[in-house]
Amino acid sequence: MTATIDTDAPETRAPSATLAVLKRAGVVGALVAAAIAVALIQSGSGIVVWQSVVTGLLTGGLYGLIAMGLTLIFGVLDIVNFAHGALLAVAMFLSFGVVQATGLHPYLTMLVTVPALFLVGVLVHRGLLSGSGGATLENQLLITLGLSLLLENGLLLFFGAEPKNVGLPGETHLDVFGAVVAGSRLYAFAGAVALGLVLYWMLQHTRLGTAIRAVASNGPGAELVGINVRRIHTLTFAIGAACAGAAAALAVPLLSVTPTLGEQFNITAFVVVVLGGMGNVVGALVGGLLIGLVEQLTTIYLDGQSSLLGVFVVFVLVLFLRPQGLFGRRT
């Protein structure tokens, strides 16, 4: 698999590789510009397209944050975590419950959801995924699938299917050069980018991050130099789950909380992960922004079609043509 948690620090990267990344970024940028231009022609209204672009990018930041946890888990453990969306739903319910019970500001529930989801991640990895029973790829797929069914239907059983809403105290609407943006959307985006940067910094500049990157690039080698690989695996899974916890607290004012809300985010997150390159945290953020854009532009191109259709078309194209992602290298 292509486990590329940025294993090469920028300074060791050969100039040609940097150039290749720049070139690809240029191609992607050109494609996006072309897509926006087509949307402009199609709709004939600048403000409509601008509104779509802004909404798309802001939503995309959230997708990126959710996908970061997923991509981290995939890059280090080679586990496709089908339960990621369900974990997100669990965190949302937790956040909703805390707001209901204590009247805390929704964003502050992060103080609860992040540690809680971290713990859940530890338990899930230690209890279900590590050891021989979770060895093969199919088994991991099936276990995380089972877990996601279990969590979603557990929420359904105990809380019912009716959607729950958490309002953001002091919600405002801002004007961004003519586009109307809800404050909660903007804050969620800013939070997503900030958390993405924290995660990136953690991976690049701390001992734990270095160990995680070492395990991702070469497990047996990391074991040889004294890294406790199983522990790193558990920690990575837990950090990935905690990302879902953080995303939940940021997104809870934006969405209706339902037991199955994870499903749609799961799909989008997988697309983002593949697009950004499995294991690439920065790629996930960029991929998230792109997918947010694709969603919005789809509704302009194909009137009446679901915005997810465009996402899937991009997904299949990327799977077939660049399975290593936009920014990954073929291995």
Partner: peptide, 12 residues
Amino acid sequence: GLDVILYAVMLI
């Protein structure tokens, strides 16, 4: 949702 829970547990 209980039936799905049961078969999810069984699956795991």
